[in-house]
Amino acid sequence: MKKKTAYIIGNGPSLANENMSLLKDKITMSFNRAFIAYEDWGFDPTYYLAIDGNTMRGMHKDVNELIDKSNIERFFLLNIEDNPAHGYVDELFTKADNVTFITNSGTHVINDGTPPVTQAYEMDKNNVVLPVAPNSGMTGLAILRMLGYNEIAFIGQDARYIDDAIYRNGSIEKISREYRSSEDNDQNHFRSDYFGKGMIFGKPNQDDIINLWSTASPWIHEQS
C-alpha cells in the first residue's frame, strides 16, 4: 500500500521547541487557536479542526476570516446545534465549499474498549457524522483516516494539562466547569496567549484524555 502521510499539529507546550518550517510543504492539520502562530510558522495547515464549543464561540470571527482569506483547504467544525446550552454554533460560521460540519453521532465513552477511529461514519463534502471523542487530536486522527491517510504523525500533542486555577494566581474566573482568563499566562499550550486574556475555555481534563489515548493505543499500533 502506498503511504499517504499527514501530520497532526497539537497545541502543547512542546510545540514551542519545534522547527515548524519543516512542515511547510507537508499535509498538516491544526486545531482551535493554533492560527495565532500561522504567520510565525510561515504556512497555513492543509486542514483545520475545531470541536470545543466554548473555544469556537470565542474565536468564530477569527475562523470566519480564515475561511475567507487563508490557504487552508478544508475546515472541520463541530455542529453542536443539538445542545441548546451552547447555541447554534454552525450559524456563527461561514458556510462555504471548503467547510465541513461535524455532527456527533453519539457521546464517545472513555475506555469503552472501542477506539473512535474504528467506528462507523458518514461523510460527504460539507457534512460528516461520527462519534466525536473529547479531544482534537483523536478526532483529527479519525478524520484523517477517513480521508485516506495511512501514515499519521503527531507533533506537539502533549496530553498533559495543569488545572489553570492552580497556577494562574487569581487571573482565572470560574464559570461552572469553564474558565475565563484575564491575563496572557497560559502554561498548558505553546503560547501564553493561547487561552489568554478574555478567552473562555473548558477546565482541563488530563486523566480523561490519557485514558482516551490509552484505549486507542492498541489500534494505533496495529496500523503502523
Rank of each mutant, 00 (worst) to 15 (best):
K2Y: 11
T5E: 15
I9P: 00
G10M: 10
N11E: 10
N11F: 02
N11Q: 10
A16D: 10
N17F: 08
N19H: 09
M20S: 07
L22D: 14
L23F: 15
D25M: 03
D25N: 15
K26A: 08
I27W: 02
I27P: 01
T28Q: 04
F31H: 07
N32G: 03
N32C: 05
A34W: 00
Y38V: 01
D40F: 07
G42N: 07
G42M: 06
G42A: 08
Y47L: 04
Y47F: 15
Y48I: 02
Y48D: 00
I51K: 00
T55I: 14
T55S: 14
M56A: 11
R57L: 10
N64G: 01
N64M: 01
N64V: 00
L66W: 04
L66R: 03
K69C: 05
S70T: 05
R74D: 05
R74V: 03
F76Q: 03
L78P: 01
N79F: 04
I80D: 11
I80F: 11
N83F: 14
H86R: 10
G87S: 04
V89Y: 09
D90S: 14
D90R: 10
D90W: 08
F93H: 05
D97F: 06
V99M: 09
T100E: 11
T103M: 12
N104Q: 11
S105C: 09
T107Q: 14
I110D: 03
N111T: 08
G113Q: 12
G113P: 10
G113S: 13
T114A: 13
P116H: 11
P116C: 14
V117Y: 12
V117M: 14
T118H: 06
E122V: 10
D124V: 07
D124S: 15
K125Q: 15
P131T: 07
A133K: 02
A133G: 10
N135P: 03
M138V: 11
T139Q: 08
G140L: 08
R145I: 14
R145F: 13
R145S: 13
M146D: 09
G148H: 08
Y149F: 15
E151G: 01
I155C: 09
I155H: 08
G156K: 03
Q157G: 07
A159T: 06
A159Y: 12
R160N: 13
A165Q: 01
A165S: 05
I166M: 03
R168P: 00
R168W: 02
E173V: 04
S176W: 04
S176M: 07
S181V: 02
S182E: 02
D184L: 00
D184N: 15
N185G: 01
Q187I: 08
F190E: 02
F190D: 02
S192W: 01
D193K: 06
D193A: 12
D193V: 02
G196C: 09
K197C: 08
M199L: 09
I200F: 11
G202K: 05
G202T: 13
K203L: 12
K203V: 11
N205I: 05
Q206N: 09
D207W: 03
D207E: 14
D207V: 09
D207F: 05
D208P: 03
L212V: 07
W213L: 13
W213A: 06
P218S: 12
W219P: 02
H221S: 13
H221P: 00
E222H: 10
